[in-house]
Amino acid sequence: MSTATFSPTVAQATAAGYFPGRHAVEVTAVEELAPGIVRFTFRDPYIAAHARPAQFVNLFSHDPMRMLPRPFGVSEVDGELVTLIFAVVGEGTAEFARMRAGDAIDVLGPLGGSFTTKEPAHYVLVGGGLGVPPLIYAAQRLSERGDCAATAVFGYRDARFADGFVSRYVDTRSIDESEGNVITLLDRMEGELTGERADGLRPVILSCGPTPMMKAVALWATKRGIPCQLSMEQRMGCGYGTCVACVVDTVDGRKKVCSDGPVFTAQQLGWEA
C-alpha cells in the first residue's frame, strides 16, 4: 500500500499560511569580495519578502555526508534576490563558494528572531568581521524609514569588504586592525552619541561579531546608558531549536541562540558595567 507524503511547494505553503520547509532555489551570483570572503545571491520570493534584520538562512550541502546545514545572516534583499556574505572556513562553505549562477541549492528560512527597531532612534550598527553582513541588512531596512537615523561602525581584520555595500544606505565609519577596533571608533564618536541631536533621536546600538568584541561593545554602551542589542554567533546545528547545540548563558538560564535569539540585550546576557 502506498504511503506517499504530500510535500507542498513554497507557493502552496505560503498560500496556506504556514512556514515553507526546505526547498530548492536558483543561485544567481557568487563573487569573491576579498580572499576567502564570498558574496552569495539566490532567488527566493518568500525569504526576500519575510526576512528581517538579524534573521538567518540555512544552506544545505549537496553532499549527503554533510547532513547539517550552514546558517548565514541575510545581508541584503533586492526584489526576489537574497544575498549572504560568508567566509570560506571548511568543505561546506568551500562547496557553496564554487557554485555558479544557474546552480540550485536547498535553503530553509528565514529563521530566528530579529533586532527590535520599532522605536524612532539613532541606530548605531556595530559589527566586526563576519558579524558585519546582518548589519548591512539592518542598514538597508532602516534607510527606508523616515523616523530614524543610522550609522554603521565596522571593524575589519584587513580588507574592508562591506563598506561599499553598507555606505549605499547609511553613514559609515570603519577601521582595520592596523588602526584599532570598533571601540576605538566608538570612543571617537562618544560626544556625538551621548550629546543631544537636533532631531532628538537617542542612540541604540545593534551589534554582531566575535563574542569578545560584543562584550566590549556591551560594556561601552551600558556605561553610557545606551541600550544595546547583540546578535550572537554561536555554532548552530539544526537552526530551529531541536539539536540544542547553540546554547548561550543568560541571566535567565541557558537559551538557544537559533530559536530564543539570535538577538539578546546586554541585560539578558549579563554583559553590563
Rank of each mutant, 00 (worst) to 15 (best):
P212N: 11
G92H: 13
G112S: 09
L84S: 02
D106P: 02
R173P: 00
G200M: 11
R254V: 08
D158G: 02
G261N: 08
I105R: 09
Q55S: 04
T172Y: 02
G270I: 04
L201M: 07
K118I: 01
V27C: 08
L142E: 10
S2T: 14
R39M: 13
A121C: 09
L186S: 07
L185W: 04
F40M: 04
V38H: 06
I175N: 10
L206A: 09
A152N: 00
D176F: 03
A4I: 13
P20M: 04
H23I: 07
P45K: 03
S2E: 14
C208P: 10
P210M: 03
I226Y: 00
A104V: 08
F86N: 02
V88D: 10
A266V: 10
D63W: 08
T151H: 10
A266D: 11
K223M: 11
L219D: 11
E179W: 00
E32A: 15
A245W: 07
C238D: 15
I205P: 00
V30P: 07
G73M: 10
S61G: 11
A16D: 12
P8F: 05
E26V: 14
P227K: 07
G128S: 12
V257Q: 01
R254S: 13
D176Q: 09
G237S: 12
V182Q: 05
D63T: 12
F19D: 05
A11N: 12
R188D: 15
I226F: 03
A121D: 06
M214L: 04
V132E: 04
I47P: 03
T222P: 01
G109I: 05
T28Q: 04
D103H: 14
